[in-house]
Each structure stands twice: as structure tokens, then as C-alpha cells.
Nucleic acid binder design. Sequence first.
DNA 1: GTAAGTACTAACCAGGAGGTAACTTAATGA
DNA 2: TCATTAAGTTACCTCCTGGTTAGTACTTAC
Lengths: 119, 119
Amino acid sequence: MIKKPITDPEVCTGNIRAMTDALESLGGKWRLLILHYLLVRADENNTFNKIEKDIEGISAKMLSKELKILESNLLVSREVQQSSPVTVKYNITEYGKQVRPVIAALVNWGLAHRMEVFQ
Amino acid sequence: MIKKPITDPEVCTGNIRAMTDALESLGGKWRLLILHYLLVRADENNTFNKIEKDIEGISAKMLSKELKILESNLLVSREVQQSSPVTVKYNITEYGKQVRPVIAALVNWGLAHRMEVFQ
DNA sequence: GTAAGTACTAACCAGGAGGTAACTTAATGA
DNA sequence: TCATTAAGTTACCTCCTGGTTAGTACTTAC
């Protein structure tokens, strides 16, 4: 029930910009799904192929592209492992873990919405 | 720090579906901005033209389309007022107010992200 | 030498999201 | 009579997202 900060016009325009920023960085079909995947599997050996197989429906092209963007936004780390053949390990960064509340809010809303709309 | 529900594979697939649902219903460039607008101005006289003028950059076409979708998802109410010319009042529903945590999470993340990326 | 595994990349394409501008309908007021 | 206002709608266009299919570079195993 934080009334003042939300209704204050100045804070509001800041909030709108913040939300636009967030939608820009986290929007799209795959980005939050990838982050969710890596969040649940932090510190596991999340290689490119493993992620591609586990996230239903994603193509190599999209995975590669989205991982690059997430990496450039410091949300995901990329580590080449000198095995043979060379594998690449992706993990969520400590900073990236801050998306947890966003994902939690969406998951909660999604669960409640399914209840509401489909009885 | 809810570990069990998040790492439990069965709950996880449910979570993924929930998040997909949420992204489907709330995704896109305008929907959350409209909901944010109506959330801040609950019970005000939010007519079509007023919303169109206040939300920077949105066109009548997009506003009309998105409001229809939000209404069909029970997030927004539409009320025709018998003035002349006839005006239409839009408001967020009680159910729609449940998006508040989603918006709050995005706003918080957006603010923090701006700090991180732009120092 | 060839097949398979890993991590991509390139080329091509379709659909849809979203932008722009003009038009509609109905009532009112000058 | 003409302009104005509110709430859309329609037609048209563009660009981006994302899908599909191949192909590349490298290394090891057979």
C-alpha cells in the first residue's frame, strides 16, 4: 500500500522508464525462460547443447542470440571449457539472480490467472 | 529462499507454463504500461482520449486493440457514460490489481539495472 | 577417411507487432 | 450549416521476431 511513491508524478515517470528498460532487457519469447532455466540450475554444467535440448522449442539460433544479449547485459556468464570437443558452460551471474523476483511474480500471476480464466 | 518448490522438477514445468501464460497475457510493448497507468489512476475518469494522450507514443489503434484484450482477460473494465458526446471510462478491475507485484518487480529491477549498466 | 559430437553461423522466409494517416458515427454548439 | 469532439475503425506499410534448414570449424573415435 505504498501510496505516495506510486502516485507521485515524478516518481511515476521514473517508474515508467524503469519498466520500459526492464521490458527491453527481459522481453521477448525466450529470455526469461533461459534465465529461469539457469536460475534453477545455478552452478550446474549448463552447456549449449544441454540448454538447447532442455528448453522446449528453442532453436540453436535463438539460444545463441539470446545468450549473447544476456551476457552483454551481465546477466549470464560464458565459460569455455578445454575439454574435447570444447564445451561452453553458461551460468547465471550473481547480478542475474536479481531477476528472481520478476520471475516469481510472473509465475505467481500466471498460476492465479489460469485459475481465474479457466475456472 | 524457497528451494524445494523451485528445484522440484514437477513444479518447475508448472512454473514454466505459468510464466509462458503470463508472458502471453501481459507481454508486448503496451499492455503493462496501460495497466500501470490504470493502476495508478484507479477510480479516476480514464477516458479513451485521456489515456491516449497520457501514455506517451501510443496510437489509438494500439490502445483500442490492447484495451479489448485486457478487457477480455478481465483485467480492465469498460463503462460507457451517457454524456455527449458519449465517453467511455476504463478502469482496472480488482482482479487486475493483482498485476501490481509484477509491475513492482519490473520497476525495481529496471531501476537497479540502470544503476548497474550505466554505473 | 569418415562419422559423430559440440558450438555455433548464414541464408532465407513468414507472420505479426506495431506505426501512420485517413475515415466513420453521432451529438452538440456556434 | 459547419466545425468540433469522442471513440474508435480501416487500410496500408514496415520492420523485427523468430522459425527452418544448411553449413562451418574443430576434435576425437572407429
